[in-house]
Amino acid sequence: MTVSRKEISAGAMFIAFGLAYGYQSAFGLQVGTVRNMGPGLFPLALSIILFGIGLAVAFNGLQGDRLASKSAGIPWRPICFISAATVCFALFATTLGMLPVTFLITFIASFARKQTRVLPALFMSACIAVFCSLLFTYGLGLPLPVFGSLFRS
């Protein structure tokens, strides 16, 4: 048996969620009694169960005599570029409009792969942007205009 980092991390995650939600339910909400339940009772009960499960999972992970080999690292590259792409869509969708914003986010997202080169990525993003504008704004009639408020003043 090896000590499992995964199990310990999963347990820690459950414990953290259990504590956070339990704290909010117990102190931020009316708990009430079983006869007259407040909004906090059900979440508080769930948080306590979750906390207990977290302890058990972490304890299971500790059952071992040697440390498991280190697992693969965190894939920062895809995480950063893909999150940046979605956040950019949220920030700029209405100001830029469908075509420019789709172009922007697919261009950003494509760099989640290390091998991506600038020129092919530009070309591909342009194609996807045109395709999405045709499909969603013209085809399905989504109320997001092809060019946003920035281009209309």
């Binding site: 893909i82 792409a85 979605t86 956040v87 869509f89 949220a90 920030l91 969708a93 209405t94 469908m98 789709t102 986010i105 697919t106 261009f107 997202a109 494509s110 591909m124 993003s125 996807i128 942007a129 395709f131 999405c132 969603f136 989504l142 109320p143 997001l144």
Partner: peptide, 21 residues
């Protein structure tokens, strides 16, 4: 990248707002 664009546009279209994204 195409899937990401679809996901963003789709989720945006629920209420025409950025918050769900």
């Amino acid at each position: 990248p195409l899937i990401i664009a679809f996901c963003c546009i789709g989720v945006f279209s629920i209420g025409n707002s950025s918050f769900p994204i």
